[in-house]
Amino acid sequence: RNRTTFTSYQLEELEKVFQKTHYPDVYAREQLAMRTDLTEARVQVWFQNRRAKWRK
């Protein structure tokens, strides 16, 4: 699989949710996936990576 390149809009939306919660539930991830036109799996992985970056 190729690396996903996120648009500025997608990143904005993802970051907005990340500010509210670092662990969005499956419903929140589904909503976000629909809004950003990404798969729920991509959203889930983005949050995993974002949490790792945040911990550093």
Rank of each mutant, 00 (worst) to 15 (best):
N2H: 10
N2C: 03
N2E: 15
R3I: 14
R3A: 06
R3H: 08
T4V: 07
T5Y: 13
T5D: 15
T5V: 14
T5A: 10
T5E: 15
F6L: 11
F6S: 04
F6A: 06
T7I: 03
T7W: 08
S8T: 14
Q10L: 02
L11G: 05
L11M: 09
L11Y: 10
L11K: 05
E12P: 01
E12R: 06
L14R: 00
L14T: 00
E15I: 00
E15K: 01
K16R: 10
K16D: 06
K16A: 10
V17R: 02
F18W: 09
F18S: 03
Q19W: 07
Q19P: 00
K20I: 08
T21N: 14
T21E: 13
Y23A: 05
Y23V: 05
P24D: 02
P24M: 02
D25E: 04
D25G: 07
V26C: 06
V26F: 12
V26L: 13
Y27C: 13
R29T: 14
R29H: 05
R29Q: 07
Q31I: 06
L32C: 05
L32M: 02
A33T: 05
A33E: 04
M34V: 14
M34A: 14
M34F: 12
M34W: 11
D37Y: 07
D37K: 12
D37T: 06
D37G: 14
L38P: 01
L38F: 03
L38V: 04
T39F: 03
E40Q: 14
E40M: 14
E40N: 14
E40T: 14
A41T: 14
A41Y: 09
A41V: 09
A41F: 07
A41K: 14
A41M: 13
R42L: 12
R42C: 10
R42N: 03
R42P: 02
V43P: 00
V45Y: 12
V45S: 13
V45W: 11
V45H: 13
V45R: 08
W46V: 00
W46M: 02
Q48K: 14
N49T: 12
A52W: 05
A52N: 12
K53A: 12
W54V: 08
W54K: 13
W54M: 15
R55E: 11
R55F: 06
K56T: 06
